[in-house]
Design a protein around this nucleic acid. Structure first.
Lengths: 246, 246
DNA sequence: TCAAAAGTGTTTGGGTTACACCCATGA
DNA sequence: TCATGGGTGTAACCCAAACACTTTTGA
C-alpha cells in the first residue's frame, strides 16, 4: 500500500485509499432467450448470493486485462468480444471499504461455455440466467446489467455483433430470433415480431453472410439453409465506415 | 488508508492500493468552433503542462459528485449537462502510483464561463482550446478527449443536447454551425456543409424550438430570427421515447 | 447600390413497411 | 396426409437529399 509512492507526491498520498474491481456481464443466446452468466458467490461479502463474475484488479493488470482474466478463468474462452461499459462508485457499495467497479460486457457463444475448475475459487456455482428472471443480485450488479444491456441494444443497431452470440453455422431464423430477443426485449411478448421477409432482405443485402450450401438435419419440417458470418467482408466495411439499423 | 477495513475482509486488504480521479472534458461553442476548456497544471506531476481539469475523488464523494465539484470549482457552474464517458487504467499512467481515471464530458454555454478564484489551486491558468489545435497533454488526456468526442458525436444524433452549448437565444444558422462543428469535424474543411433548407426543415419539424419574434441587432445584413429551446416539449417527448438523426 | 447572410419549396430516389401464399421435411 | 416452420415478391409510403433564387439589412 505504500510502494510506488514518492516523496515528490506526498500531498496526494492521502488519496490512495481505494480498490477497484471489474464486473463482467457475459451474454449468451440459446436459441430462444438472451441470457447472462451469473455466479453464486463463495466469499464475503454477499457470500451465497448471485452476482456478476468479477474480481479485484491486480497491480500488474490494466482494466481490460483484468476483465479478460475474469472471463477466461470462468469460461476458458479467449479472444472474446469485450467492451467497457461504465464505472460505478457509490461510497458504500462495498462493505470492506471504498471499491469502484468498472463494468464490462462480453458476448460468447453459449455452446462454447464450460465452467473451468479454476473458477471455483470465488464461485461456488455458475449458471445462465434468462434476462427477465434475474433475481436480486449482490452489490449494485443489477445496475451494471442495465447499463450493459442498454449498450448492447445500441451496439447491435450499428455493428453486426449479433454474430458473436451465434454458433459458426446458423439459420436466418435463429439470427432473427436473436435480434428480436435484443431489440424487442421490452415489447409485449407475442405481439410485434420483426417481419420475416423484410429482415431477410435487409440482412442479405449487407452481403455479410455466406451461404454454406448446407441445411439443418433432423428437424420435423423443411430444413433451413445454414449460413456463416463473413468476417473479412465485415472488417473491410468497417474500415470504410458503415452503419445500419434494423 | 487503513480505516474502513474489517477483520472479515482481511483477504482483500491487499487490493486497497489505488487512487482514482475524475477528468472532465468540458465542451463549449463560440459560434464557429467547438472548444475544450483546458488548464495549465500547477502541481506535480506534469506541472506546467496543459491537461483536462480533474482531481482525485475524495472519500465522501461519488464519481458523479467529484466530477460536479471539479466543474463547479473551475467554472462556477451548477446543473450542467454531465455524462460519464469511460475509465482508463493503464498501469503506469500516473507516476505517484496506481491511479485510475474516470472520464466525463460536460456541455456548457461558453459565455457563462468565468474562471473561479478557487480554481487557481491546481490550475495556474485555464483556457479554451479549439479541438483541432490541442497540444500534447498531460497523462493520457488526449485519449479521454477522443472517447468524449466520439460520445458527443453519437449523442448529438439521438438527443437534442446541442442546445446545452448555445446561449438562450440563438439563430438557426448558429444551431446549424454547431451541428456542423460536431458532425463534420473530420470532413474536408470548406466542402460538405449541411444543407441549409434540409437542416431547417428537420429541426423545425421537431417542434422543439420556440420562435421568439425577435431578430438579431447590429448585423450588417438581414437580421436572423431568434429562437429558444423548448425544454418542456423535449421532456415530454423523451418520456414517450423518441430519437432522430441529422 | 452593393455586399452579406437570411429565408424559402419542390422534385427525385432509396429504403422501410406492410402483406399472403407455396414448399420441403419427418412423423 | 398432416403439421411445422422455411422460404419468397411487390406495391405503397415516407423520409432524405439535391438544388437556386429572392429578401432584408447596414455600410
Amino acid at each position: 500500500m505504500d510502494n510506488n509512492h514518492n516523496i515528490q507526491f506526498d500531498h496526494i498520498n492521502q488519496f490512495f485509499y481505494a480498490a477497484f474491481t471489474v464486473d463482467n456481464v457475459i451474454f449468451g443466446f440459446d436459441g430462444g432467450d438472451l441470457k447472462i452468466l451469473l455466479i453464486k458467490r463463495g466469499e464475503e461479502p454477499f457470500s451465497g448470493k448471485w452476482a456478476l463474475p468479477g474480481y479485484f484488479v491486480r497491480k500488474t493488470e490494466t482494466l481490460d486485462s483484468a476483465a479478460k482474466r475474469v472471463l477466461e478463468e470462468l469460461t476458458g474462452l479467449k479472444n472474446v468480444y469485450l467492451q467497457q461499459v461504465r464505472s460505478l462508485g457509490k461510497i458504500d457499495r462495498h462493505p470492506a471499504g471504498r471499491v469502484i467497479t468498472v463494468g464490462y460486457f462480453s458476448l460468447i457463444k453459449i455452446e462454447d461455455y464450460k465452467i473451468q475448475p479454476s473458477a471455483t475459487g470465488m464461485a461456488k456455482q455458475a449458471e445462465w440466467w434468462s434476462l427477465k428472471e434475474i433475481a436480486e443480485l449482490a452489490f449494485d450488479h443489477d445496475e451494471v446489467i442495465d447499463f450493459a444491456f442498454e449498450m448492447l441494444k445500441r451496439r447491435v443497431r450499428t455493428q453486426p455483433i449479433g454474430f458473436e452470440l451465434l454458433p459458426p453455422k446458423f439459420t436466418l431464423t435463429e439470427l432473427q430470433q436473436l435480434y428480436e430477443a435484443i431489440l424487442l426485449s421490452d415489447a409485449p411478448p407475442e405481439s410485434n415480431k420483426l417481419d420475416k421477409r423484410n429482415f431477410r432482405k435487409k440482412i442479405l443485402s449487407m452481403n455479410l453472410l455466406v451461404d454454406l450450401n448446407e441445411v439443418q438435419e433432423g428437424v420435423a419440417h423443411r430444413p433451413a439453409k445454414l449460413y456463416r458470418f463473413d468476417k473479412e467482408k465485415y472488417h473491410a466495411l468497417q474500415q470504410a465506415g458503415f452503419s445500419y439499423g434494423l
